[in-house]
Design a protein around this nucleic acid. Structure first.
Length: 672
RNA sequence: CGCGGAGUAGAGCAGUUGGUAGCUUGUCGGGCUCAUAACCCGGAGGUCGCGUGGUUCGAGUCCCGCCUCCGCAACCA
């Protein structure tokens, strides 16, 4: 059968430099819901996701792990496949930029653009940081120095191919101004226009000679194709482009391309410009969703506040996680993730409202009619409201889903679940049951409840693919394609039990809030150096702001005593010593950092950078005896070497107080 | 004067073209007993960041000024 309606949806291709976190799952689950919904509606769906595997960072990570880049990404991609499988992601295709077909297509695209003059060879002029081997533009520099390491940079030139993006500036402005649907939410379009388009676009460097983990420029082996052409073009190479027959002609242009708000710039400027250069139609919509914030701050590995979706799924089940992700936060906006919110959603929405509705309905059918609702049924005055609400529900859900308003869709469905619960209270079936004359009315009431559950089961399929079938099973509705079809949600009276109902076990068991939060905190304890107590040392300037809140939060949690025990051997690994501060000054360009010169007795002098400038003035520290973690791995903070860390207590207001010694001991004394 | 977003009941959020301020959760009280200590009803709780600003018969909603918070320069969704 040839379906005439197609729907092509994409997620970004993820960068496999490490395992994915809950944020990646958020995007992908959202795309999955749309894909499942459209399939239910009878569309021929192409749902694409994948990985962006080239680039310097991967090369470095692989080298650090002592692996070849390909082997390195293979391993991570394997994990990503497992995660998507766990989350019931129903992608039709998974593209890797290291796929041979993709690489060939990228070369063909590059060649075409070069041949037609949209790509030209020139020189990339920038500020080069030799130790970091990285280029920076004038505006990226911090105080004229490398923004990464703070060291000197020098002006240098590197040969590079450029994409003539400036040529498409006017067409891009027109695109964003005249097509309000192209970028969603629309506020993001303004940002693009004001920040980038109106000030003027520069041509884009699209090749590099400074590393070689990438696709070679077909006519110039010294260059590898840089991220833009390589990564963005995945959306068309996955369909076979430059071959424009088959899948490409069938699915392109994409209906929706989901991206996080951070990369919307590349998808609304560079990507359309590339397509214009290739003379291809543009995607119908690029949707930039918001972030899931962890305790109010951005999620990132270096902060140690990353939530592992696999752990959550294991503990709560896939559907609970999928439901939470899309229910908790309006899709375009930022929202926060917290264990408490997750457990609350599971308890209130899934267990109390939906789970309990199923439970009480099936229990009554079992109890009053031994699982079989008689066909002699008498309508009552309470029925009308429930039935008419159900009748319009499918359309309301569709309207909202087509606008990707996932949280609103779930609100709408749950309103109906609430109505069904209320319907039970209004009709009081337990009273009807006592009166033999009211059996027909009781039958009607219970049938209506099964009916409501059937409608809900159909509509929630895209969101919670495991739960829909469970409900069908519980009400003994055969899960045939005809019965589960989307259109069946608009029908009232299609419930047809295949066998007697039984009282069913809870589909979403209620959780103990406090116990869960404790358990989750224990699971999520960051293993590395980002634990709160170490934060003053471990933070870099750019991380400080966002980690501040996370610190406060996790600190409060820690007082509950859920930190796992360590062996004495572990403790012994840490060398504490006393040290005397000989000199101390603020670190230039950083708000919270102080750089101290310490006398550590026999060990000589040490330089330590600490994030305590808000709590101490530099001169206050001089002469103090402090506790130093002596064997902490040295690291650079704002360009300054920091060999160790000063122990501090954190006060309630978030300020730090140094640990002191009771009495007087020489510098360099052991502590422990 | 960089750009954008946000500031509405304890918490988290809605408030469409200006017309009596809503939802969820929490809290207090009541009902019910079919059900996963679940479900249903009701009460309390807000001078809608500030300017006793402007426009208007009327402003959370439009205009002006100010304050606070967050994001944006890094190919972390």
């Amino acid at each position: 059968m040839t379906k005439d309606k197609t729907f092509y949806i994409t997620t970004p291709i993820y960068y496999p430099s490490g395992n994915l976190h809950i944020g990646h799952s958020y995007t992908t689950v959202a795309a999955d819901v749309m894909a499942r919904y459209k399939r239910l509606k009878g569309y021929d769906v192409m749902f694409l996701t994948g990985t962006d595997e080239h680039g310097q960072k991967i090369q470095e990570r692989a080298a650090a792990a002592g692996m070849a880049p390909q082997a390195f990404v293979d391993e991570i991609v394997e994990g990503i496949h497992r995660l998507w499988s766990l989350l019931n992601i129903s992608h039709d295709r998974f593209i890797r930029t290291t796929d041979e077909a993709h690489e060939k297509s990228v070369q063909a695209i590059f060649q075409k653009l070069y041949d037609q003059g949209d790509i030209y060879l020139s020189e990339y002029e920038g500020w080069y940081c030799t130790p970091d081997e990285s280029f920076w533009t004038e505006s990226q520099l911090k105080d004229g120095k490398c923004p990464e390491c703070g060291r000197e940079v020098h002006l240098t030139k590197e040969s590079s191919y450029f994409f003539r993006m400036s040529k498409y500036q006017d067409r891009l402005i027109e695109l964003l101004e005249n097509n309000p649907d192209f970028v969603q939410p629309q506020s993001r379009a303004h940002e693009m226009l004001n920040n980038f388009l109106r000030p003027g676009l520069e041509d884009l460097a699209v090749s590099r000679t400074s590393f070689d983990w990438g696709v070679k420029v077909p006519f110039d082996e010294r260059h590898v194709i840089y991220v833009w052409v390589d990564a963005l073009s995945n959306y068309i190479t996955a369909l076979g482009y430059p071959n424009t027959d088959g899948d490409f002609s069938r699915y392109w242009p994409a209906d929706v391309q989901l991206v996080g708000k951070d990369i919307i710039r590349f998808h609304t400027l560079i990507w359309p410009a590339l397509l214009m250069a290739l003379d291809l139609p543009l995607p119908k919509q690029v949707y930039g969703h918001g972030w899931l914030l962890m305790n109010g701050g951005k999620m990132s590995k270096s902060l140690g506040n990353v939530v592992d979706p696999a752990v959550l799924c294991e503990r709560y089940g896939v559907d609970a996680i999928r439901y939470f992700l899309l229910r908790e936060v309006p899709f375009g906006a930022d929202g926060s993730f917290s264990n408490e919110a997750l457990v609350q959603r599971i308890n209130l929405d899934l267990a109390n409202d939906l789970g309990n509705l199923l439970s009480r309905s099936t229990a009554m059918i079992k109890k009053y009619f031994d699982g079989v609702v008689p066909t002699v049924r008498e309508a009552g005055p309470e029925d009308e409201a429930l039935e008419s609400e159900a009748a319009g529900l499918k359309d309301r859900v569709e309207t909202l889903l087509d606008k990707l308003q996932f949280s609103q869709v779930l609100v709408e469905i749950w309103k109906f679940i609430g109505s069904a619960n209320k319907y039970i209270d209004l009709t009081t079936p337990w009273i009807l049951a006592k009166d033999p004359a009211k059996q027909a009315r009781l039958a009607a009431v219970l049938a209506n409840l099964a009916e409501a559950l059937r409608v809900v089961a159909i509509l929630i399929q895209p969101f919670v693919p495991e739960t829909g079938p469970k409900i069908f099973e519980a009400i003994r509705q055969a899960a045939t394609p005809e019965n589960t079809a989307w259109e069946q949600a608009a029908v009232w009276g299609a419930w047809q039990a295949t066998e007697p109902l039984q009282a069913c076990a809870p589909v979403f068991p209620r959780l103990d809030l406090d116990a869960e939060i404790d358990a989750m905190n224990a699971l999520l304890q960051p293993a590395e150096e980002a634990s709160p107590e170490q934060a003053p040392q471990a933070q870099t300037a750019e991380q400080e702001k966002s980690s501040k809140k996370a610190q406060a939060e996790s600190k409060a949690d820690n007082t509950e005593g859920v930190i796992s025990n360590i062996d004495f051997a572990d403790f012994e690994k840490v060398h504490f010593l006393t040290a005397v501060v000989e000199a101390c000054e603020k670190v230039e360009g950083a708000d919270r950092l102080l750089c101290s010169q310490l006398d550590v007795g026999a060990l000589g002098k040490r330089q330590v950078v600490s994030g305590i400038a808000n709590s101490y003035a530099p001169e206050e520290l001089v002469g103090k005896t402090v506790i130093l973690v002596e064997n902490l791995k040295p690291r650079k903070i704002r360009g300054k070497e920091s060999h160790g860390m000063l122990l501090c207590a954190t006060a309630e207001d978030g300020s730090y107080r140094l640990l002191a010694v009771d009495g007087s001991v020489p510098a360099g004394s052991g502590v422990g």
